[in-house]
């Protein structure tokens, strides 16, 4: 078992009323799964992803990640946990405009305090693996959307996470580029990486092994 959410609630107080973003979520993810989270806008998909990614906190319930009780962990410990095991892919790529492809890939390793030579070899491996060696000195603005997302995925995978969280990874791409990224995900999943993706597209959801539908913060 990779992670488990038990009776997770998340809410905000708005105008004296409690608005639930997540309501009684129970979810168990095994290693090697490929899960698609679906639901209309505002149903809490991204919130769920952020909670799983430990970027966001929740108000009630339990969250165990690799048998660590995340909800009781200190901020620093939690940060170490996600730095080590989780990679993120965003809809709008979120690459740093001022850095080259190579530097963008290197960044997460810097924050994991990986040694210089090891960083070099990891970056080189990754460039190779994603076939972007030729683009390593380009800036994100010089790449197409699909290529940027490719770099985004590469960045998420460079520190060999157990879990990749993708928030509408194909949302900004045309259908062909989207397909390529989904194929990539499928391939990664086959290599053993657990993937949770948020998507609007039925077609993309079919790449996954399991679909979770959310409505108003509730799993249906």
């Amino acid at each position: 078992m990779l992670l488990q959410l038990k009776n997770v609630f998340k809410w905000v107080n708005s105008g004296g009323q409690r608005v639930f973003l997540l309501k009684d979520i129970n979810l168990t993810v095994e290693e090697g799964e490929f899960i698609s989270v679906m639901g209309p806008s505002g149903s809490g998909k991204s919130t769920l992803l952020n909670v799983i990614g430990m970027l966001d906190s929740f108000d009630e319930g339990e969250y165990r990640f690799l048998d660590e009780p995340v909800h009781t962990l200190k901020e620093k410990h939690r940060a170490n946990l996600y730095k080590q095991y989780i990679g993120f892919v965003f809809q709008s790529y979120h690459l740093l405009d001022d850095l080259t492809v190579q530097e963008n890939l290197e960044m997460p390793l810097l924050y994991k305090k990986v040694g210089s030579s090891e960083r070099k070899s990891l970056v080189a491996d990754t460039l190779d693996r994603f076939n972007i060696v030729g683009k390593k000195d380009l800036f994100p603005a010089q790449l197409s959307g699909g290529q940027q997302q490719l770099v985004g995925v590469a960045r998420a995978l460079i520190s060999s996470p157990k879990l990749v969280l993708a928030d509408e990874p194909t949302g900004n791409l045309n259908s062909k580029q989207g397909e390529e990224i989904m194929e990539l995900f499928k391939q990664l999943n086959n290599e053993g990486v657990t993937i949770i993706q948020v998507t609007h597209s039925e077609k993309n959801a079919t790449y996954g092994s399991r679909i979770i539908n959310l409505l108003d913060g509730r799993k249906i």
Partner: peptide
């Protein structure tokens, strides 16, 4: 702001 956010997600303290 955005850059800071990205860096934090990437694990910056």
């Amino acid at each position: 702001t955005k850059e800071i956010g990205i860096r934090k997600v990437m694990g910056a303290s």
